[in-house]
Design a protein around this nucleic acid. Sequence first.
DNA 1: CCGATATTCAACCAATCGGTTGACCAAACC
DNA 2: GGTTTGGTCAACCGATTGGTTGAATATCGG
Lengths: 118, 118
Amino acid sequence: MVQQAMSNDLDTVFAALADPTRRAILAMLLEDDMAVTDVAEPFEMSLAAISKHLVILTKAGLISQEKRGRVKWCKLEPDALRAASVWMQGFGQFEPVNLDAFERFLEAELPTSQDGPT
Amino acid sequence: MVQQAMSNDLDTVFAALADPTRRAILAMLLEDDMAVTDVAEPFEMSLAAISKHLVILTKAGLISQEKRGRVKWCKLEPDALRAASVWMQGFGQFEPVNLDAFERFLEAELPTSQDGPT
DNA sequence: CCGATATTCAACCAATCGGTTGACCAAACC
DNA sequence: GGTTTGGTCAACCGATTGGTTGAATATCGG
């Protein structure tokens, strides 16, 4: 049963999305791939903590990490959100994609500064 | 700032969705409003545990509970999913609502039986 | 009023979470 | 080769989670 796996996937995806730091990280990665250190920069939190968050996001399939040299690059993997999105949309025929609302969410959610890497 | 609240809402909504029991409950309530005891019936879990899950879903705004007599009726509140859905859709311009996929999710996720109340 | 039914409350438990710190490892620089 | 830089690992911490059980509360039916 391939389908058995999906329930588990939804567990990890939703659990990953339940943390504001992780959602902020995803929003940052929307703009560009980033190194772990750069991801951590805007947060008032140790690098190790961010590293853990990135592991959780990776296990959920929401991002991928590729090591080039000593730098580990983080890349958004929006496909993992599709399953969760399908699940949710079944509950109400939501209005089609509303980018305005999305941008407002990003503004409300992002940490101190995300004007982009200098 | 009204917007500050949204981040917190997303926390609770996604956290609520991260549990398979709670997602199954939501799927059951899609078909009909249900009493707490009936919600609990298909699960191998104490009534108290289900009651707790329902509190969590209520706090997340995903359901509402109305007490009529000694029976507490649970009702799906799909609006709470809209915010989360908007957030997620920003990450990839997903295909428009795919009900087929949704039904497959429900089948894969539902517990033993949910043929509906007799 | 009594007993059954519907639901929550309270205390408890083990497991997980989100964070810390310090040691550690590997690549890069000079 | 030594030192900085990028990142993880390991141990630890307090708080939360998801479940249990047993008692409590409230309503319904006779």
